[in-house]
Design a protein around this nucleic acid. Sequence first.
DNA 1: ACCTCTTAGATGACATGTCAACCAAATGCC
DNA 2: GGCATTTGGTTGACATGTCATCTAAGAGGT
Lengths: 155, 155
Amino acid sequence: MPATEVSAVDDAEWALFDGFVLMHAELGRELDRRLQRDAGISQADFGLMLALFRGPEEGLRPGALGELIGWEKSRVSHQLTRMVGRGLVERVECDTDARGSMIVLTRAGRRALLGGMRNHARDIRELFLDRLEPDEKRAIAAASARVLGGLDVGR
Amino acid sequence: MPATEVSAVDDAEWALFDGFVLMHAELGRELDRRLQRDAGISQADFGLMLALFRGPEEGLRPGALGELIGWEKSRVSHQLTRMVGRGLVERVECDTDARGSMIVLTRAGRRALLGGMRNHARDIRELFLDRLEPDEKRAIAAASARVLGGLDVGR
DNA sequence: ACCTCTTAGATGACATGTCAACCAAATGCC
DNA sequence: GGCATTTGGTTGACATGTCATCTAAGAGGT
């Protein structure tokens, strides 16, 4: 592929992209394994429950939940179905809009979340944050925001 | 969570991790959509076929393939089964070790790969590489390698 | 040759994610 | 009120990944 090509991607850049993707994949897998082992939940469970935990007492609508964690509605719905089955969350009748329900943490869900929280934070620190230099943290934060912003606009 | 806690993760660091994860997820989804639209294949298909394409004429063993792209063997096997079904690759009898077969690209596979290559590179450049500053590229490359290295050792 | 141990892969069960189609309540407009 | 449209969610079909288990072929030692 000639260097004059607009879309040309040289070896160093391929390596950058590849390494980045691979790192993220491995990191995610390891975090998932640990979270599963320590608290019996997945990262998906964790993120969703964390949003619920931080949210209002009455719970959240599936839509609002998806908005918060950046998931599309069908993904939220499927995940909720599975989590209801595992007893982590509950669908509660909603007064103001009968099309959907409010989602709330069950006692077991809250327990699993709290149990996982400390270890998960430790793992993220150990496997990721602690391995970054301060300027790398700045660079990654800035780059993530910029790339993410570009994606939303482009769609 | 007190700041003296070893595992303490402050807001800025949570945001860093969250933003990073979200960015990667969105980027991957968008790249997948485009690759699917332009060449009818997934990123998984693409990566696997690219390794085959770069490899020796006779093809590669599933194990070697997995080694190259960093996948575990069962994942490779499942993906191959699906891709054989879609006519992208073929399992060929192996002389030297009858436990497995050599994997080779089919004509259709090669065509799909070549069709996707240019556009995919352009997309990666447009959505990711072109949005990074030179120092961010350096930082991300270095950080990826370090984090990845830490994961392998830790396991 | 024979028996054991290792290794390469395949497979089944199951969790996850995407897309498209569907459904019913809510909303707008006449 | 009555009806079309929008909106919030669910569902089904299907691709993907993980783990545990299984199979059969190599390799080694006697």
